[in-house]
Design a protein around this nucleic acid. Structure first.
Length: 585
RNA sequence: GUCCUCGUAGCUCAGUUGGAUAGAGCGACGGUUUCCUAAACCGUAGGUCGCAGGUUCGAGUCCUGCCGGGGACGCCA
């Protein structure tokens, strides 16, 4: 149970009661009242801005609302004190039993603790990775992959019904280049000397395997034949084999998709035409001539009538072309069809996770989603900034042309999936991120993966020791959930408990904001509070977790220790990271 | 030229969708170990939240305009 939501209801009830008795006007914005922990813990456990928010619409001053409201709240059995402070905040101090009950709740719910129903089962489609099937995933893809996957997990925990989706761009010129490059490697596999890979082809060594595979299965039947005969075959085979590779690499990071959508399949099924007809039917398509882009006019620019979508009616800067001059659909047109497809498959809420270089694309796609769904659908685009790779502080140089780019597989193989996943979430998605091979493997405070894992391992270790110190006692979560927790009275113990009790609230707000990185920062806080408490036992022996002469207190503390480990495990679960039991080598 | 995005301590970054005296880590300085994992912890110093206006009870957060970094800009995907 989310303590803050629980009190939101109580506060709203008190407000409604007050409104009745004092004859306040109808339609007051009670739903905008915040119920949150104050920044400064000395202000109490829960703070609400109700009085300040309502003063104006009620037509009085904040204090005139705060005083009777505080009085009413103070009468609640769970509330120890209610004070009016500052410009009109009401600070509540809750009975310790409220917090202690959360410890028991964590132990009985396990890592499911923090799950919420705010999503109300609403369907969300999260599209991420969606790398072109023209080569293996490289390190830069890791960020979007981890971000999207964690966001999907977070939304699921917050009660949404989530579809994880990958869009295969298998329809454009790039996959034809892939097919031609593969054909070269195929000839090479059959013993031909192909020399240097010509300009306009993908030089990567990874295509040798694909060429080899086709040589083995098909023999020399595609040698010396015109391109028109083999292009389709090579395209399809190469894409298929590349996607197999991509899926395998993603699986190595624990990432699995519910749906893979093929751009080509959509086009062939006539989905683009249908999307176009939908827009056309709403009068949102016309033939017109675009102005050349200011400041950077292409050399070969010439004004040309084109089929345009009225994106500017939905917040975009200009209208956008749907057809190329050769009459084929633009990528944008295909993408509109794809988003309509996602919408029609039952997800009104769409999320695209893209690289930051797609920033210029956001407005038009949002406009398109609004237009094509008749305002029923919404799109949020999360742009992931670059990842800079370092090795012991030295930048790792990458060049696609020189073929020296680092693959996702390289990174996973050298530092492990868990480290990659955690580090990728230690920055907001729109900030550039530094990833240092050495640092993520360090066992120091400097390495957030280690720091959080250490807290979990330390908790496990303490429980193990307690088992030796208190033989014959049941230290299972089920047993600890029933233990009397009255001896948890130290301010730092209660502080840790309050932090743990904030997990459900964090899940809700992070899911709402589509910001999974908050989980990583939160776990850092939990770990810090736990390490701090552990060390406090060094200075003050009575605060040690295990007190051989005081079984009752030890059991209560074991409950807290297990609750801490459980919340950490719950958070790591959202991040897709495995909690470790032991760090000793 | 237009649009997007970022700008917070010496460095790297958070900041609870507008709340109270802006927080962490690193680095610096000073402490803590016969004891549950010192792979850690505690304390001190460090700020014109890029600049200037505006909105309101209240702005790091929202609006406008500048400055600076990054990105995008018709038939690439």
């Amino acid at each position: 149970m989310n303590v803050f939501n629980q009190f939101r209801e109580k506060i709203q009830a008190a407000l409604e009661d007050l409104a009745r008795r004092q004859g306040w006007p109808d339609g007051l914005p009670f739903d905008r009242v915040t119920v949150e922990p104050p920044r400064d813990l000395s202000h109490g456990d829960i703070s609400t801005n109700a009085a300040m928010l309502l003063a104006k619409p009620v037509g009085t001053n904040p204090r005139a609302i705060a005083a009777p409201l505080a009085e009413a709240l103070a009468r609640l059995p769970e509330v120890e004190s209610a004070e009016v402070a500052g410009p009109g905040f009401i600070n509540l101090r809750l009975a310790a039993s409220v917090w202690l009950a959360e410890v028991a709740a964590i132990l009985s719910e396990g890592t499911a603790y923090g799950s919420s129903t705010t999503g109300e089962g609403r369907r969300v489609n999260v599209e991420y990775v969606s790398a072109n099937p023209t080569g293996p995933l490289h390190a830069a893809h890791a960020r979007g992959a981890v971000f999207g996957d964690a966001l999907a997990a977070l939304l699921k925990k917050a009660g949404f019904t989530v579809t994880r989706e990958y869009y295969i761009n298998d329809a454009g010129a790039q996959v034809e280049t892939l097919a031609r490059s593969t054909h070269l490697r195929y000839r090479e596999a059959l013993g031909e000397d192909i020399g240097a890979i010509p300009e306009g082809h993908y030089p990567g060594e990874y295509l040798k395997d694909v060429g080899q595979a086709i040589a083995e299965s098909d023999g020399d039947r595609w040698v010396g034949k015109p391109e028109s005969e083999w292009l389709e075959v090579f395209r399809a085979r190469a894409v298929e084999l590349m996607m197999t590779e991509v899926k395998r690499d993603l699986l190595a990071m624990g990432i699995q998709f519910d749906t893979f959508s093929s751009e080509r399949a959509l086009v062939e099924a006539g989905a683009v035409q249908r999307a176009f007809d939908t827009l056309d039917g709403r009068g949102l398509v016309y033939t017109g001539v675009l102005e050349p882009p200011k400041g950077k006019t292409p050399d070969d620019w010439e004004p040309r009538p084109q089929l345009l979508f009225k994106a500017s009616e939905f917040g975009d800067d200009v209208d956008r072309p749907l057809k190329k001059s050769d009459g084929s659909w633009t990528y944008f047109a295909n993408d509109i069809a794809y988003h309509l497809d996602k919408f029609l498959r039952g997800s009104p809420e769409l999320i695209d996770v893209l690289g930051a270089d797609h920033g210029g694309y956001v407005k038009r796609m949002k406009a398109a989603v609004t237009a094509i769904s008749g305002g029923e659908g919404s799109l949020d685009v999360k742009l992931c900034q670059l990842v800079h790779l370092f090795d012991g502080g030295k930048p790792v140089r990458m060049s696609k042309r020189a073929g020296t780019f680092v693959t996702l597989r390289d990174v996973i193989d050298s530092v492990g999936s868990d480290s990659v996943r955690f580090i990728m979430l230690t920055r907001r998605n729109d900030q550039t991120l530094e990833f240092d091979y050495q640092k993520v493997q360090e066992q120091s405070r400097d390495n957030p993966v280690f720091y959080v894992q250490y807290a979990h391992a330390r908790a496990t270790s303490v429980i193990r020791h307690a088992g030796e110190a208190l033989p014959g006692h049941d230290l299972s979560d089920a047993a600890l959930a029933k233990v009397s927790l009255g001896s948890l009275t130290d301010p730092d113990e209660l502080g840790l408990i309050r932090l743990l009790a904030g997990w459900p609230r964090l899940v809700e707000s992070a899911a709402d904001a589509h910001e999974p990185h908050r989980v990583a920062f939160y776990l850092g806080e939990v770990a810090a509070a736990f390490h701090s408490l552990w060390n406090k036992g060094k200075d003050e022996a009575h605060l040690r977790f295990i007190l051989p002469d005081d079984t009752a207190t030890t059991l209560a503390r074991m409950a807290l220790v297990r609750a801490t480990a459980t919340v950490i495990a719950s958070g790591l679960g959202v991040m897709g990271v495995q909690p470790v039991e032991e760090l000793r080598e």
